[in-house]
Amino acid sequence: MELWYSEQHTPNVRFSVKVNRTLYTAHSGIQQIDVFDSREFGRFLTLDGLMMLTEKDEFIYHEMIVHVPMAVKQDAKTVLVIGAGDGGTVRELARYPGIERIDMVEIDREVVDVCREFLPGTASGLDDPRLNIFYEDGLRFVRDKVDMYDVILVDSTDPFGPGEGLFTREFYGNCHKALKADGVLVNQHESPYYDYYADSMRRAHIRIREFFPVCKVYQAHIPTYPSGHWLFGFASKVLDPVDSVDTAAWNLLGITTRYYNTDLHKGCFALPTYVYDVLDGGRDGQ
């Protein structure tokens, strides 16, 4: 018998991973949570049947969502993370000694509990003493926060299902309010390749651009996400991600990484022409 996990990347494209065994399967009341073990990618977590992370390639996503903004804002003291119940984002943040406080808002406590049990490699970050975990809707959490954070990282699921509220105009407006004057907002920005994801990306980009004068997009290669080509949005009221990064200072921090480096920092903001076109095409409307 062969057991395969399949994700429908489009109605006509499937991505499959051969599974050794199922480690966990349950509905949390918010979403379906599954953890599988595989030969190719090690253990992996899916939410509502969609791939969230694998032990093998999670470092790419987590390094890129954290080190790009942190290299720009190396003096960050307060960081808000939305989503990220697996702990990978917090694990990377915890490597910056200058951070004094990390607030993490995860809507689903069961994701955190399941990751602690089955994915200790990422969940290890959740034990950092600077971390405060809030189990509530991210949209609700930021609503009453004003001028509080140096960095906000939106490590959300896709904009359908529980993460939907994190791709809305009201959410980006609230983040703008919650950020300090030179704060930085980074969000996972979906993929530019398949139409369905590209549309989400474009809408998110348009909405962020309404609030933030600096609004750039950077890319990473994540093998287990649809098309493998994934984007992140970088937004700030003042800081340009490439011009204002002090690469020498970051390298002196001595943080060892496997994907991120300061050359890549500059390079990842250079996008394929078709991606620029999709993003610019958004300028005329939705």
Binding site: D137, L139, R140, R143, D144, E164, G165, T168, R169, E170, F171, G173, N174
Partner: peptide, 10 residues
């Protein structure tokens, strides 16, 4: 509901 409340706040 959260979306509505946040939008009203905005």
């Amino acid at each position: 509901i959260e979306r509505l409340v946040s939008a009203l706040s905005e």
